[in-house]
Simulated assay, not measured.
Amino acid sequence: MTKQHLVLQTDFGLCDGAVSAMYGVAYSVDSDLRISDLTHEIPTFNIWEGSYRLYQTVSYWPAGTVFVSVVDPGVGTKRLSVVAKTVEGHYIITPDNGTLTHLKQEIGIAEVRTIDETVNRLPRSGESYTFHGRDVYAYTGARLASGVISFEEVGPRIQVEDLIELPKQEAIVEGDQITGTIDILDVRFGNLWSNVPRLLSVKEQIEYGDVLEVTIVHGTRQVYKSTMIFGRSFMDCQLGEALVYVNSLDNLGVAINQGSFAKAYGIGTGSNWTIQFKKTGERRTLLETNEHTPID
C-alpha cells in the first residue's frame, strides 16, 4: 500500500516535548513516514480555530493525506475519537468535539469511523487518559498513513450526521448591506477574515475600486465604522490605510497596508463579532504599482 503524508495540528505549542513525542510515536510505526506540521499554535482549547485551519489547508494536500488534529479540552472523557474521510479523499483524525465543522459544511465528509482503541492505541499506554494525541491519534494516524491498517480497520462506522458541529452562521444580505461574521484572523499580519463569500459581493455588484462603508460590532457595541476601498491587493491603497480585499479562501477580508487591523482596533473573532459591508456609491482609482503584494 502506498505511504501517505501525515500532517499534525495541535494547540500544544513547541515549548515542551509533546509534539516531539507525537513524532516519535509516528516514526516508531514507520521510520520512512513523511510527517509535516499544519500548526501547533492553535490558541489553547480553541476548537473553532482548529476546525477553520483544517478547512484552510486540507484541500491543498494530495488525496489520501492523513491529518491529525488535537485540540481536545475534553480529553479523558466519553467524547468519541474519530477518523473522517472527506469527499476529496483526505483523512482527519480528531476528537468528535466540533473540529470537523468547517470540513463537513464547506467540503463534505463521506464517511466516519470511531477509533477502536483495543487495536489502535500505543502499546503499554492503557492507563494514560490525558495524552490521546500521542497514544491514540498519532499512533492511529501513522498506522493509517503507512498502510499498516486500512480505513475500514480503524473501527466501527458511525453516521456522518451524528458528528458534533459548532454553531456556524452564514453571511446574509439585508437591503443594501452584507452582514457576516469575523471568523478568524490572519494571525501574523492582523487581517480580518470574514465569512462573506466573494460571490456574494459580486451578486451585490461590488467592484474593485468601490468605496465601502465597513462597520464592526462586538455583541451590541459598535467597535469600528469607516470607509475604505475594495482593492485587489494590499498595495491598492496608501501605506497605513485600510482596505477590503479577497482572501485566499475567496472570502472578503479587511486589512491595513503594512499594519495590523486587529491590533489597531482591538478586533476579535467569533459569532459575536459582526462585520457589515455597504457600498457608498463612491469610487476611487486603484493605486498602480509595478509589483502587487500577493493576497494572503
Rank of each mutant, 00 (worst) to 15 (best):
G147M: 05
E161N: 08
E161S: 14
P197F: 02
V173A: 15
D162P: 00
Y208Q: 10
L200G: 12
D183E: 15
Q169I: 03
W193R: 02
F151Y: 07
V202T: 10
G147I: 05
G219R: 00
G190N: 08
E204R: 10
V223H: 04
G155D: 10
G190K: 05
V187Y: 09
V173D: 10
R143Y: 02
V187L: 12
D176S: 14
T227W: 04
H218I: 01
N191I: 08
P167D: 14
V202I: 11
R188Q: 13
H218R: 12
G209W: 05
T179N: 15
D176C: 07
G147K: 02
Q159S: 15
S226T: 14
P167Y: 14
I158S: 03
V223M: 13
S226D: 15
Q205D: 11
G209Q: 06
I206H: 00
V148N: 03
Y208W: 08
T227F: 05
E207R: 09
E153S: 08
L144F: 05
E161M: 05
L166T: 09
L144R: 03
R143W: 02
P197M: 04
E165L: 14
V211E: 04
Y224W: 11
G175Y: 06
H218P: 00
N195C: 09
V173S: 12
D210T: 08
I206Q: 04
V223L: 13
E174G: 04
G175P: 08
E153C: 07
V217A: 06
E161L: 06
E161G: 10
Y224E: 04
E213N: 15
Q177W: 01
I206T: 02
V202G: 00
Q169F: 03
Q222F: 10
E204M: 15
A145Q: 09
L185I: 07
V211T: 12
E204N: 12
T179C: 14
H218M: 08
E165K: 07
I158H: 03
